[in-house]
Design a protein around this nucleic acid. Structure first.
Lengths: 278, 278
DNA sequence: TGAATAGTGTCTGTGAGACAATATTAT
DNA sequence: ATAATATTGTCTCACAGACACTATTCA
């Protein structure tokens, strides 16, 4: 760049002008996911599980009055992980929550104010642990997703408001079945957050198949029926009981506790047990 | 923040002072991976495949004279993907290369000059396509990795120079077997690039099992023996012929071409064929 | 001819899908 | 008694691991 010669790293750094590159801002956005239980009315039936995510209503520009994922700018002395955990703590008042980096979005115009690159995270919580501790503008939305060859049609519902958006996908790479995603319809969500939601749902769907990630959304004690319901609502398909029990057999531990009162045979309560290492 | 009330997004944006948050710089770093063939001396034997990555020798501070991954700052009007592709093009003179975002690293002190967040990418190339087109400071290093319970021991070798580093891992999350990585020993690589290398190798190892990603490193025509060698060098274990052939049977297409001259039975040449959809 | 790779056949055990059967509760 | 869930048994089929066997080339 300039012609000056340096003889050591120290000398170079002392002289370094960090303003030669135009800088930008970064945010961390967090997709907080959980499962809720809804009464069915029939005393015999189990509660119905719904997959849900946490959104926050914006009361400032940009995107005033739209919904968005919890997020915020990262400090100059703060890592992305720390920022994500800070935001998560603010939003839920909980620590020790499962959190994982998803993807970094960097479209030039994704924020109308200025250049902002955002790294997205996903977090999983057991909703029972925090239902009353939510920050004031936050609300849980049940998620209904229909996926076809070309697009995702998503409906979010918090009981009083409905949000719909459509994300289209175009094949990016033949060898790994990766897609480029594009927001085709979106009225009520801020920024590119529909893309974050799709990424997170896909990541969760994949990981539930080959990891024990699901237990991050479960209470300490649960029945196998409840666990199966959570799998089914995430994978969006019915599973056969015996097959399901085989799959999770070595991930859970039977306790002496029982769940009764359901108008049907009571169920043993189980605990998560880390899969035995081969 | 300030008390002023805005009535529209336009009005707000016009007034917006983007300097309220301290900004930072971002880079894209690319782990370019390939496989090289080395003669064995024995006319009967196949060439031996080695897994290799591309490094660049730095001739400026910081980390002057150390090796690093190809990378660079992103422009204020450039996405991370575009920056990664630009850097890849600079380095290899090739377009249409497989590239995939890996992870975003944001340690506060990862760059001694100033705060720099880096999004890493991995790219796969067929080395035969570009061996002569490399940029001047670049060099291919063969990769030897030993992994145990607690750490990765990696040796890189380009024929004239050897780079060794150690990365330790500590379990981060019981449910998904994720680890926190830390550089325990590293003399010759700049920045946190050992972590990028580990991430990329792990990602590739996983994806080779459930996608067709390997074909991005293969020439158009190849024998099944060569393909198997590539699998073996990436997975770092021997595979049984019949099992391997079953696995890749519906991913490849036999051509009428043959590879002869090996001092042994000639082999049919195959082409990649996208797996038949069920 | 023999070393080396190419390519196929087949046995066996594991595990998933499918379906059937039994058990137990609250109303 | 009945609706609903809980739990287990078992048959079959697909597939991966393992090993054996045959085929073909060139110095």
């Amino acid at each position: 760049m300039d012609g000056k010669e340096y003889n050591s790293e120290e000398e170079f750094l002392k002289d370094y002008d960090s303003s030669v590159f135009e800088k930008l801002s970064m945010t961390a956005d967090i997709l907080i996911m959980s499962v809720s239980s809804e009464e069915t009315g029939n005393y015999r039936k189990l509660t119905e599980k719904k997959f849900s995510i946490l959104l926050v209503k914006r009361d400032n520009y940009p995107f005033k009055d739209k919904w968005c994922l919890p997020g915020g700018f990262i400090g100059i002395d703060e890592t992305l992980d720390d920022a994500a955990k800070r935001i998560l703590k603010n939003e839920t008042n909980l620590k020790n929550i499962y959190i994982e980096q998803l993807y970094t979005f960097s479209d030039v115009k994704r924020d109308p104010r200025m250049r902002v690159v955002s790294t997205s995270y996903m977090a999983l919580v057991d909703k029972n642990r925090l239902n009353d501790k939510l920050s004031k503008n936050a609300s849980w939305f049940n998620v209904f997703m229909i996926e076809d060859e070309k697009s995702y049609h998503v409906t979010l519902d918090n009981g009083s408001e409905e949000i719909k958006f459509v994300v289209t996908k175009t094949l990016r790479d033949l060898t790994t079945d990766r897609y480029d995603f594009k927001i085709a319809k979106n009225d009520k969500l801020a920024f590119d957050h529909p893309l974050v939601i799709i990424s997170g749902l896909e990541r969760l769907k994949n990981k539930i198949e080959y990891t024990d990630i699901v237990f991050n959304m479960m209470p300490e004690y649960f029945t196998l029926g409840e666990l199966q319901q959570v799998y089914e609502v995430i994978l969006n398909k019915k599973l056969l009981d015996p097959a399901f029990r085989r799959i999770i057999a070595n991930k859970v531990e039977k306790t002496s506790k029982m769940k009764t009162g359901g108008g049907h045979r009571p169920s043993a309560l189980f605990k998560y047990k880390r899969k035995s290492n081969e």
